[in-house]
């Protein structure tokens, strides 16, 4: 088994356990540092749907909201598929 591990590492098929650890750590720290819980992210998602739906029809099932880390900054990235624009959004709002 040890030999197999060694070979698969040599060919880069399997990441070493420390790489797994650093990757997991990076991800978990994005959330820790932003102080964001999955519950909060869900609540944010629902609010986004409610607000955006006033202006356009969106594909709610396809909506993705996530925190991404690049270097030392964290960005909130939302991918929201738009089905169609609402023509009369202004009259709805008034």
């Amino acid at each position: 088994m040890a030999m197999f591990d060694f070979i698969s590492r040599m060919f880069g098929k399997e990441s070493s356990s420390k790489n797994v650890a650093t990757e997991r750590l990076r991800l978990v720290l994005v959330h820790d540092r932003a102080n964001v819980s999955p519950e909060m992210l869900n609540a944010l998602k629902e609010d986004l749907i409610r607000v955006i739906s006033e202006y356009m029809d969106i594909d709610q099932a396809g909506l993705e909201v996530a925190l991404n880390q690049e270097d030392n900054t964290v960005a909130l990235v939302a991918n929201i598929p738009v089905l169609r624009m609402k023509r009369n959004y202004a009259s709805n709002a008034s």
Binding site: R9, S16, S17, K18, N19, A21, T22, L25, R26, L29
Partner: peptide, 15 residues
């Protein structure tokens, strides 16, 4: 660390 089974100094420092 040498075997890649423990984070090294640079890994921890980076994070």
């Amino acid at each position: 660390v040498k075997k890649g089974d423990m984070m090294n100094i640079v890994d921890v420092e980076d994070i």
